[in-house]
């Protein structure tokens, strides 16, 4: 119990630190954002019009009061889910813009990550169980080779072959003519649009899990408790799963939870190649357009996502590995 309380306390402390940093860093930057904006709109050499700057301040919502009152109102705004207004999609609030992109990414990257983990762990465990067989060599060598290929390059290749040359799949966007919602035509379109991006991610994503799982499990298979499990005359399936794989899985669990946290950031390169309306593309846009409110919120989202995922990983690890509970409590 103590272990879990500690982990949650640690999570809350880190979360607070992240939110506070997110507040402080922009205020350490030199210059007035409103002036920068107006200058940008008016052109590099133009004279600044004080009225325009004033107007811009009013529009963006300039901070007033001392740093502490600002901080309190910032926390208050966060609590109400008010993250400001996007420059790029003016006048839409940042939350709405992100709300649009989030489901796309959650489905595309989330599903591929989970699939990649399941495929990777299964292949890795099986390769380890049949180590030094042909299956093992093919899996190990194959994944080492594919692992050297960058995923955006695979994405471009797939886009070229299946999108343009053969023309089986659409080349951009998340859907074309249908109305978004829970209806047949839209779902069919969404699936066909996400097929190539998903495939591009799925080709490389399991490799880390395969190699990691295989190596830990090969090491585990040398342990005495595996030998004893075999001596006990347990069926191979039980030895492989309950004794070997269960122990070998532990290090991967943390990795997986952190990878899931990263899902919120989307996959910038692949989403841009397929012009997929997710968080990754949004991030690319926010960077390109210097859309600070959007970028700041996206980063906060990713931080919170990774932290949450870490918390889940820690809690899960405590359940899976009884040794962790004692060692740290």
């Amino acid at each position: 119990m103590r272990y879990f309380v500690r982990k949650i306390a640690f999570f809350l402390a880190t979360l607070w630190a992240a939110i506070t940093l997110n507040f402080i860093i922009p205020r350490l930057q030199p210059g007035d954002p409103a002036e920068v904006m107006v200058q940008k709109l008016a052109g590099k050499d133009a004279q600044l019009n004080p009225a325009a700057v004033q107007a811009m301040r009013a529009m963006l919502g300039a901070p007033d009061g001392n740093l502490f009152t600002q901080y309190v109102s910032y926390l208050g705004a966060l609590a109400h889910g008010d993250f400001g207004i996007s420059y790029t999609y003016y006048p839409y609030p940042v939350t709405e813009v992100i709300g649009q992109a989030l489901p796309w990414t959650l489905v595309l990257v989330g599903v591929t990550q989970i699939l990649a983990f399941v495929i990777g762990i299964t292949l890795g465990a099986y390769a380890a169980w049949r180590r030094n067989t042909r299956f093992d060599s093919i899996v190990t060598l194959g994944s080492t080779f594919i692992g050297t290929l960058p995923s955006f390059w695979i994405a471009l290749l797939l886009l070229f072959v299946f999108g343009y040359t053969v023309g089986w799949f659409p080349t951009s966007g998340g859907y074309s003519a249908s109305t978004p919602g829970f209806n047949g035509p839209f779902i069919t379109e969404a699936v066909s649009h996400s097929f190539l991006p998903a495939l591009s991610l799925l080709i490389t994503a399991p490799i880390g899990w395969i190699l990691g799982m295989r190596n830990t499990m090969v090491m585990n298979l040398g342990e005495d408790y595996i030998r004893l499990a075999k001596a006990k005359g347990l069926p191979d399936r039980v030895v492989a799963l309950r004794y070997a794989a269960r122990n070998a899985l532990l290090p991967s669990v943390t990795g997986f939870a952190i990878a899931l946290g990263g899902v919120l950031g989307g996959s910038i390169l692949v989403e841009q190649i397929y012009d997929y309306p997710g968080m990754g593309r949004l991030m690319g846009e926010a960077i390109g357009n210097r859309d600070f409110p959007l970028l700041q919120t996206l980063l906060l989202f990713i931080i919170v996502g990774v932290l949450l995922a870490n918390l889940v990983a820690d809690l899960l690890y405590g359940v899976l590995d009884p040794r962790a509970r004692r060692a740290q409590s």
């Binding site: 004893l228 499990a229 269960r246």
Partner: peptide
Amino acid sequence: DIATVFQSSMNSLNPVM
């Protein structure tokens, strides 16, 4: 029929069970 006790390497029991 045949059972065994291995070297006391302290590692013959599955740590997660």
